[in-house]
Amino acid sequence: MNRQQLADAHRGVRLLTGHLRGEGESLDSAISAGRYSEAEAEAMADPLVNVAIILARQLRAALDVEIGVALQRARALTKPELSEYSRLASALIATVISGEHPEPIEVGPRVVAVGAQEIAAGAAKALADHLGEHPNAVVARLRRQLQEQGEGVQLSDKDGVELQSAKYAEDSEMRQSRLDTALALVKEINNGAAVPIHNRGVDLHERNEIVGRDCYEGLSRIAVTAAALGYGVVQLVGVNNHYPAYALLRQLVETEFVLWKFGHDPSTIPGWLNSDRDERERTWKPSKIYRNADNDYRQKDYSGHCEMGGHPTPLGTLIASGERSAVAEASVLGDLIGHLRDSWGHIVSTADALDSKWIQSEPCVSIDARQRVADAHAKWSRIDKYGYSVSYFADPL
């Protein structure tokens, strides 16, 4: 489960809670208030599908049955008039659990959202019946489990994931798409962001705006570092040297931490740029950043990167030996794309904040550069199914 899927699952829990209690945020309240537009349905579909998947897997484990039987048990507790909706959602859920990339559903998000809500509610009720408790207690426990991110709240079965991921990893079109996208993002972070951000700092320096210069210069230096690390990962993958590629990827994660902090408070950038080692140890270490209560990262995400390529580990030595090289390549490039994409977002939002503060008439990161990144990412998302099959935060299963 990646970060977005986790956020969706948390919202799915809120929506399901509202449905079961008949109050609060829910699909039902949106429909009754006349707010159930296509956009609203799309925003609710993934959260409800995710929570339905998790509860279906938990029901399967509790009953010790196959997933098809668990889904039948959940469907038996759904509304008869919505049986076609729940049937479609059930098929989608089974596909995702198997680790396979689901094909687009032609009926659209309205039907998917309603069907997923029915399956989620049915699975919660079936679990409650089996455990002798109230469905609300099942959902409340799920909220706590999402914080821990154990096996019980993943979206796909590991065996199925490994089977599908191997197939997707070796697909020639998907392999090329990963490489092309990673290179496109590296190029835009360097040429479309780091260079113009640096140039804007130079302009401010010439006007004796030293603090402004430091803000842009600090952001530019971290951006160019992210681009250099990203390109290094691609070069190492190109010669099938995946273990050090993971080590560089961990370094990229550290630059992403700093970029997040810049975006969260751009006034900290001059302090970083002019810091000494002691100051960076106190303020800028990854462990300091990922423990901030309001950040987007978790220690598990960072330690996972250390496990793959930061420290000598049994898993790391397998990667170093070249075992399952196609999977290692797909994993490191897919992970790289995700971190470059997130880094780009932090860079752009921080640059925009600086442009606003220093009253710049034009954004230093151009609209064209932003569109190229969006287009490259959208094309990759359409082609590559590997990332979907192994998604577990930023780390491969």
Rank of each mutant, 00 (worst) to 15 (best):
Asn50Trp: 03
Gly192Glu: 11
Ala76Thr: 08
Val114Tyr: 14
Ala45Ser: 14
Ala41Val: 12
Ile289Ser: 00
Gly232Val: 02
Val233Gly: 02
Ala56His: 12
Glu100Cys: 00
Ala61Pro: 03
Arg87Met: 13
Leu59Ile: 05
Arg57Asn: 06
Ala9Ile: 04
Val332Ser: 03
Thr350Gly: 01
Gly304Pro: 09
Gln147Asp: 14
Glu148Tyr: 06
Val112Arg: 15
Leu142Tyr: 10
Gly230Ser: 06
Thr317Lys: 15
Gly316Met: 09
Val233Trp: 08
Gln147Ala: 05
Ile119Trp: 11
Pro102His: 05
Arg73Trp: 07
Asp265Glu: 08
Tyr392Ala: 04
Ala226Trp: 08
Leu88Asp: 15
Ile319His: 05
Leu142Pro: 07
Leu15Ser: 10
Ile367Tyr: 06
Ala39Met: 14
Ala41Met: 12
Arg207Pro: 00
Ala227His: 02
Asp265Phe: 00
Ile31His: 12
Ser303Glu: 15
Asp352Thr: 05
Asp64Met: 02
Gly150Ala: 08
Gln360Arg: 11
Leu397Ser: 03
Lys285Phe: 00
Glu103Ser: 13
Gln360Val: 02
Tyr290Thr: 00
Ser349Asp: 11
Ala62Leu: 14
Gly238Trp: 11
Leu397Pro: 09
Gly99Ile: 07
Glu40Arg: 15
Met1Gln: 05
His339Leu: 13
Ala328Thr: 04
